[in-house]
Write a protein that binds this DNA or RNA. Structure first.
Lengths: 282, 282
DNA sequence: TATTGGATGTAAATAAATTACAGATAAAAT
DNA sequence: ATTTTATCTGTAATTTATTTACATCCAATA
């Protein structure tokens, strides 16, 4: 769909001259959409038909059509490219890159997300006797966030950071209880253990994790959070945010399913919080 | 900037024939970007130069340029509209809406974010003797996430959820310590108290919060997280994610400032985590 | 009703993109 | 190492699309 991604993805499959065209476009996509095929050909130091062939190879009808696609790609938050933070980046540079990387990956996971699975998960959650959220490391804060959200719904919900507490909670779970396990990689040993424990005790296990991972194998339902993590900086960044949005979606589905009366309760909770706040002056 | 808006805005200022062109385009903008000037002229039942003149009147260079602008408008036109979740929404509907609302607000906060302030914050953080992150409710998980991130940097860092612990930590802070307080509204009483306590003890207080809030007034530096929260569902959703991205930016700035040797350490931490994981089979 | 100014279309000119083809290059096979 | 083959690339011709110049028309005003 996105032409810029398409280009960078197929970069190595291109011939020498076509590669020149790709480079020229990636160097300055914004100016590319305002050039004619002749200008671009000269810029890339190739012939005009080469540019045309390049466009076709990118699954477009021709040069004008290609420009249209390019324009649309650029409109969506600008470059999806070159978003790796580099040593020499200025504050503006890395700030922009991080925001864009986050948005780009959200966009991708939106396209990937399986709403059928989401719906199933909401089904399970609405019928749960008790809901538990567990994660470790970076995913622990996602679990905590989920706790905060579902706690407002006035349903039995819990979350622990401590591994032993997590294990005990899973051992104590029974039929009708739901355990949600959050892990980007799906390879954290303690989490896989939790999944097995919970399953042994007839709890329903939902994983927000990578499909085809050891954790996924132990889950009754897997919500894929497959986001290609930018590991350049050795920190979980975008993956975590993808998980959070999934939690948001689940929580929203939950409230919608519960109906209007239920949502009045939500507002009551919010009113209750107000007491602990300074009021707005206006 | 947005051509579609531009058209509908100037609709009444157009001449009869040009109005026909506008109508034809508004009727089906998507097909318009794929038509030639001849096709569009026939569709609108006007001559080709009329279409061209129409394009010029819309502040574009000509027909091809107009199509480019139109394509861009279409690309990011939809998401900003009608993104409130409604009772009758299907799974697909609310999932898409939540993703789009999140991306849209990230896009907005990217444009709002003040990199000068970010830079100052990074300055302060790199020189901190000790860093503390505090938040309450939904922002507590953001604080926890920040802890997880900065803990990898091998710097003295702490975070507590408990109010009393938070107070004690602030009372024990001294000159050179940095306290980061996270609150979407900036009106949580206990957090404002924390800011005052920390300041009394000569710690530097950074707020990730709303400008012009009581909390902001007590901070040495305020990183604005002004995201218009969609309060329809009485849950903090997008605000939290905006805060997380700000944490990401700060963490990135921190590592960049610390240089390469420092980043090797990060990789070591990541290697250390690996032991607790199932390895990938490939 | 004549006149003026803008709006519109026709036809010509220009510009752009595409196709067809031929030469060049690189890889594979003898 | 040389020939063959397939693929790549550029030139030139063709087609298509866009723009300009100009003539005509229509509506408004005097």
């Amino acid at each position: 769909m996105n032409v810029l991604e398409q280009i960078s993805l197929n970069l190595n499959k291109l011939s020498r001259s076509e590669r020149k065209v790709a480079d020229a476009i990636l160097l300055s996509p914004k100016s590319a959409i305002h050039s004619s095929i002749a200008t671009l050909a000269k810029l890339a130091d190739v012939s005009e038909p080469t540019v045309n062939r390049f466009c076709r190879r990118m699954d477009t009808k021709g040069f004008p059509d290609f420009k249209l696609h390019l324009a649309q790609s650029l409109a969506n938050g600008t470059p999806y490219l070159n978003r790796h933070v580099e040593e020499s980046d200025s504050v503006d540079d890395y700030t922009t890159k991080i925001y864009e990387a986050t948005m780009a990956s959200l966009d991708r996971s939106r396209q990937m997300v399986d709403t059928v699975t989401i719906n199933k998960a909401v089904d399970i959650l609405t019928q749960a006797k008790k809901i538990s959220f567990f994660g470790q490391g970076a995913s622990a804060s996602v679990a905590q966030d989920a706790l905060n959200k579902f706690f407002r719904f006035n349903v039995p919900v819990q979350s622990f950071e401590d591994t032993l507490m997590q294990r005990m909670a899973c051992i104590n779970s029974t039929d009708g209880d739901v355990v949600i396990l959050i892990s980007h990689t799906g390879r954290t040993k303690t989490l896989v253990d939790l999944a097995m424990l919970a399953k042994e005790n007839d709890a329903t296990v939902i994983g927000i994790t990578a499909t085809d991972s050891p954790l996924a194998e132990e889950c009754n339902l897997v919500i894929s959070s497959e986001i290609p993590e930018d590991t350049d900086l050795y920190m979980p960044m975008v993956s975590r945010i993808g998980q959070l949005v999934i939690v948001d979606v689940l929580a929203t589905g939950f409230t919608l399913r519960r109906g209007t009366k239920f949502r009045d309760n939500l507002q009551k909770v919010k009113q209750g919080i107000k007491e602990s706040r300074y009021n707005k002056l206006i």
